[in-house]
Nucleic acid binder design. Sequence first.
DNA 1: TATGAATGAGTCTTCATTCAT
DNA 2: AATGAATGAAGACTCATTCAT
Lengths: 218, 218, 218, 218
Amino acid sequence: MNDRSETAARKIEARLPPNVAADGVRRRILEGALRLFATRGFHGTSMRDLASSIELQPSAVYVHFASKEHLLAELVRAGHEAHHEEIRTALLEAGADPVAQLRALVRAHARMHTRYPDLAIVVNTELETLSPELAAPGLALRKQSVALLVAVIERGTAMGCFSPPNTSVVAAAIGAIGLRIPHWYSPELGISPDDLAEIHVQLALRMLGTHLAKDTAP
Amino acid sequence: MNDRSETAARKIEARLPPNVAADGVRRRILEGALRLFATRGFHGTSMRDLASSIELQPSAVYVHFASKEHLLAELVRAGHEAHHEEIRTALLEAGADPVAQLRALVRAHARMHTRYPDLAIVVNTELETLSPELAAPGLALRKQSVALLVAVIERGTAMGCFSPPNTSVVAAAIGAIGLRIPHWYSPELGISPDDLAEIHVQLALRMLGTHLAKDTAP
Amino acid sequence: MNDRSETAARKIEARLPPNVAADGVRRRILEGALRLFATRGFHGTSMRDLASSIELQPSAVYVHFASKEHLLAELVRAGHEAHHEEIRTALLEAGADPVAQLRALVRAHARMHTRYPDLAIVVNTELETLSPELAAPGLALRKQSVALLVAVIERGTAMGCFSPPNTSVVAAAIGAIGLRIPHWYSPELGISPDDLAEIHVQLALRMLGTHLAKDTAP
Amino acid sequence: MNDRSETAARKIEARLPPNVAADGVRRRILEGALRLFATRGFHGTSMRDLASSIELQPSAVYVHFASKEHLLAELVRAGHEAHHEEIRTALLEAGADPVAQLRALVRAHARMHTRYPDLAIVVNTELETLSPELAAPGLALRKQSVALLVAVIERGTAMGCFSPPNTSVVAAAIGAIGLRIPHWYSPELGISPDDLAEIHVQLALRMLGTHLAKDTAP
DNA sequence: TATGAATGAGTCTTCATTCAT
DNA sequence: AATGAATGAAGACTCATTCAT
């Protein structure tokens, strides 16, 4: 039950977050891989596809990356780190109020998915494709990000700000609505990324049963 | 920002919905394909993998299916049809009350994802893998399912039952929450499938800002 | 300081010992591999070379052998086992006399190298090419074969039949003269394989300083 | 039927004979190539392997050698020339006595193989790897070396010093015994290179059936 | 209905080598 | 003299699929 054409988000150029320190050919390879992995999947993309999409010989890719899997690993690493850093920073700047924290976190989560839709798809679809060693750092960051969200919810609940029906289910739900963004959202839909983030904030607060009426009003 | 081991849902046997009229070897092939496509993806699964997982020669699979893609197509068809039929039926049995309709729809959506987690993964991950002709029926059903949800929300809103911040975003959110179930849910978590469905109903009603307080109690 | 054209022995068809239980295509593959590995070396032979030399697609080779290395391993196994079996049997049939034992052993050693020259080359050139696990059985048999020779020499020396200047050097020398056969010998040289074996027996007995004059006379 | 660990000789540093007029990087390249070609074979060694073993970029090797094959050709040339020169000189210094000549020749042959084991392996294993033009000089020298040995044997036989069962077989045997040295010999075995050479002399004289008993004493 | 052998295109990757710097 | 990036051919091997049995 997802929506719109699956390719809506593709119109947005494959974009890499700032924590990818790569330029020149290496960057073009990462961008090409990002686009193709997001579109056709890792196993659905051949090195020939990738190389020719950026007008390179397949062998030239190996000058910059040890293997197709390492290429994916770099994207997955960058995606996870950027995401985690983003929500961690948002949280730090939000102060002590659980509601403000929740707002900041959901906003950051949504923003990452509108800003880097291809990367979000690759990170979420292909993490398990990596060998355990290469997947480990991503899995660890993911766990930490969820733990942050759960902690905010639990603290807010203890302080009487939230009354979720079930903490972990709501946490999963909040995660899920952001995760799904790249599959249907496009700025051409008439909703700006900021608007979308704010709507997601609203939805999250509603799901949590926030008790500060003024905050939850549209 | 999804959680738990990604493989939690795998413990549940690969299951096919009742609208798959296949038995004997044909059924075993579909079940094996379902498990493998869900775990490793369509392109990550070879016909050899599939055949050997059910102790068959690759060539024997072609006695039952014209191609690997047709195998996927059958799974995707069955998944989409079962899902659509399920929510259509739920809606029909719910009467005319938008809140009751919403409840029925969300419940059915969640149930499909706890009952057929592998199928849900395959349907959502690999639909675009199919050729346009084979993907078309699935895309059509998907559109219809979303239209049903949107219609319920719009009617409920018009009747003053709901006050969503944005109809299509909430529709996407409701879809997303269910879609994510196979990636984290396991009955061993201490939540029964029915409990989960009810919590999802709660969350949907909260997101919609339902105005009949008594309705939101389980 | 080896002699004649290096390719003299090549005129002899690539031959497999009887302990290779393979027929049809599998046998043709082994024979082709034997000829090519002996001529160009393992790393100098591509699967394409091999396949096309027996009019097969490269992929068809994989129906019969798991890898190029397994193909080599089978040749090396067969070669070592045949050689060891041959000298073990010769020894058993030779009775208790050290001189007779030595004769039998050298004869068998020489015969294996005239009968299976390509296999001898492959076995001796490419054993170390194999991974440790695949090389281990060959190395073990080789050790046993040398041990047999050394035991015969030591027993004969203790019994006063032999007076070698140095047991292990003579053992190495006896091994060496046989090992070199495939690199220079051809029946067209006017020496029959049996003649060559007898000459090698003579040379071995002379190196050992055998004290039964009648045996060492040409 | 050769013995000891095949890698015993590897402990000896890859060494080049004095007729290799190369210093600095060019020499390091030759030494690295020598070690690797001896260990893994020419086709089993890549230019990357070679370059990285001496901490150079592959492209830097081409500053000093036109191609991988020319590198091998230089080693093969040096090996053959050094070997031939050594036995030619030994022969010249031996005087007119066939027995003394034989002694000198065998001694020189053995010494070359203890002193330059890697080079001996490369020369004997990879000569045929070279293109006919590049292999020709080596083949010519080899023929000459064998001719020298055969001439000594024939002259000694004519003079009544030797009574070999078969001249060319004994010549091949004498060659073979030396050729095999790098595959089993190590000074750590408790035999000095000089000792080994003397034992080889003994063995050669015994094979030839030398008639001057006093000559066979060391 | 299922097999085992085969195909030919395709997989990822490495090769020796070149070239601008 | 050496590098780093690139090339194009070739490497071993796997792919989905076919077909005679």
